[in-house]
Amino acid sequence: MVTETLRFNGIKRELLGDPSETEIDDLRRELEERIRYFLPDGGVPSDPLTEAMRAAALSTGKRMRPLLLMLVARDLGCSSPALLDAACAVELVHAASLILDDMPCMDDAKLRRGKPTVHIQFGENVAILASVALLSRAFHILSQTQDISPLIRTRLVCALAETVGAQGLVRGQFEDLHGGHKRSVDDIATTNELKTGVLLGLSVEMAGIIAQADERVLQSLRSFAMAAGHAFQIKDDLLDVPGNDCAQTGKDVGKDAGKATITATLGMEKTQRRLAAHLRDADDYLTDAIGSKQRTRLLVGNLFRKAGPVVDLHAP
């Protein structure tokens, strides 16, 4: 069953037709235009490297991480032009990571966002180079971001470097590949934090840094991102269950078969309860950071509208 509403922050709200949807749509369009600006086609139709970069970064996606960055900042009262560029940098890093995740030596995926994966379209060698180029472009964008002080710019670059490296996304993918099939729930959760939570954490931390939030707010945002990251990873695990339709998920299903996942370890019912608990925690931490403001909540609610069976945040 696909849910059309989500109890988030203890209030059952209809998510379609909310006036804030227009704001999210406008931000998504601004983001798409800015990414195209940073990744011009160059006017050379036979340049597969550029085409691969654009295919990875401009394919239809949720844009969850960059939108989260911009909406959290707005909920914190900040509308700096630097937010859009920081959001683009985060999305390019995400796109680069997906290229590598899909490679035959990693998850060996054939479908991403409803289209053939980058290595299927352009070859493995081009895909690897496109991923490196996207990472490089992300750091360049941050280093040139205007409307912020050099100190804030340096903090953003450092945060990005820490997130991508051996203690972040790279470590998460390594543990996912080499962690074995019989890991504890805690071990799986740690891998999920590195695979999903750290990039969400980067998004909200960048929002807080640009908004010049204090350390208490930053810590609440980090905790929100970790809880939301666990929830998103569980959602992906649920969507990966064999029998789901690739046309609806936009990517291959059954790729986690044989892997240690929360769903495989706990079963569907306990996994659903765990998902609801993470969402409750996420909302509590979000309240600590932004109070009752709704922009970020609306985005999170929309993203979980198709998480599978109805998620009741009041479930035990």
Results as ranks from 00 to 15, higher is better:
T3E: 14
T3W: 03
T3P: 04
T3G: 13
T5F: 08
L6S: 00
L6G: 00
F8D: 01
I11N: 13
R13G: 01
R13L: 08
P19D: 02
E21L: 15
E21I: 15
D26T: 13
L27I: 00
R28K: 15
R29K: 13
E33L: 12
I35L: 13
R36A: 11
G42T: 03
T50N: 09
A55C: 08
R63M: 12
P66A: 08
L68Q: 06
L69K: 04
V72F: 11
R74P: 04
D75Q: 05
L76M: 07
G77D: 07
P81F: 08
L83C: 05
L83N: 02
L84G: 01
D85Q: 09
D85E: 09
A86I: 02
A86Y: 01
A87S: 09
A87L: 06
L92E: 04
V93Y: 11
L98F: 07
L98Y: 03
D102G: 09
P104G: 13
M106T: 11
L111D: 00
K115A: 10
P116D: 06
I120H: 13
F122P: 07
G123W: 03
E124P: 07
E124W: 09
A133I: 04
L134D: 08
L134T: 10
F139A: 09
F139V: 14
I141D: 04
S143M: 05
I148Y: 03
R155A: 14
V157F: 00
A161D: 15
E162Q: 14
G172P: 01
G180A: 10
I188T: 12
T190M: 11
T190D: 01
E193G: 05
K195E: 11
T196P: 04
T196L: 08
G197R: 03
G197K: 00
L199T: 08
L200W: 03
G201A: 13
A207I: 05
I210L: 13
A213Y: 00
E215F: 04
R216M: 12
V217I: 15
L218P: 12
R222N: 03
S223L: 15
A227I: 02
A228R: 03
A228K: 03
Q233S: 10
D237A: 01
L238G: 13
L239T: 08
D240Q: 01
D240R: 05
V241L: 15
P242M: 02
C246D: 11
C246A: 07
A247T: 15
G250R: 06
D252V: 07
V253L: 03
K255D: 03
A257H: 04
G258V: 12
A260C: 07
I262V: 14
G267E: 15
G267R: 15
M268F: 08
M268T: 08
M268C: 01
E269H: 09
L275N: 09
A276E: 11
L279R: 10
D283N: 03
D283G: 12
A289N: 05
I290Q: 03
G291H: 04
G291R: 10
K293C: 11
R297A: 07
L299V: 05
G301N: 02
L303N: 02
F304K: 11
R305D: 07
A307L: 02
L313R: 11
H314T: 10
